[in-house]
Simulated assay, not measured.
Amino acid sequence: MTERETQLHHVVFAVAPERQAAVAKMFTELGFSFDSTELTELGLTIYLDWSGGIELISAVPGAKADVAASVSDFVERNGDGVYTVVLRVPGASDAEAVAERYGSKIRFRQSISGEGSYLDEIDLSVLGLPLTLLSTNIP
Rank of each mutant, 00 (worst) to 15 (best):
D120S: 09
A59F: 04
Q20F: 02
G53D: 03
K105Y: 03
E55A: 09
S135Q: 15
V15K: 01
L30C: 12
L133G: 02
S58C: 10
V23T: 02
G31A: 11
V75R: 02
D80A: 11
F32C: 10
D66G: 08
K64H: 06
P130H: 05
I57C: 11
D73W: 04
D120G: 04
L39I: 15
D120F: 06
D94H: 09
G103R: 07
I54Q: 12
L39K: 10
A68W: 01
L39N: 05
S111A: 11
A59T: 09
S70C: 09
T132Y: 02
L133M: 03
G91K: 11
K64S: 14
V12A: 01
F34R: 08
S93G: 04
T84V: 11
F13H: 12
K25R: 11
D120N: 14
I106Q: 09
F34P: 08
V11Q: 10
L44Y: 00
E41M: 11
S113C: 10
F108P: 05
E3S: 08
R77L: 11
L30Y: 04
A99K: 03
L127Y: 04
R101W: 07
G79H: 03
L127V: 10
S70R: 14
T2F: 12
T84E: 08
L48D: 01
I138Y: 00
R107V: 14
L133Q: 00
L133I: 06
R19E: 07
T132E: 05
V60F: 00
G31V: 08
V98N: 04
H10F: 13
A59Q: 06
L44D: 01
S135Y: 01
V85S: 10
V60I: 15
R4A: 13
A24Q: 02
K105I: 12
E55I: 12
S125Y: 07
H10P: 09
A22N: 06
Y118G: 09
S51V: 13
D35K: 15
Q20E: 07
G103N: 05
A99W: 04
G81T: 12
F27W: 13
L119N: 07
V85H: 02
W50P: 08
S93T: 12
E18Y: 04
A63Y: 02
A24M: 06
A24N: 02
A63S: 12
G53W: 01
Y102S: 14
T45H: 00
A68T: 05
K64Y: 01
L30Q: 10
L134C: 13
E5D: 10
L127G: 14
L87N: 03
I122V: 14
S58P: 12
G91I: 04
E5K: 15
L87H: 09
H9D: 14
F32T: 06
E100D: 15
F74E: 01
S70V: 04
D73E: 13
F13M: 15
E55F: 03
A95K: 01
L131C: 02
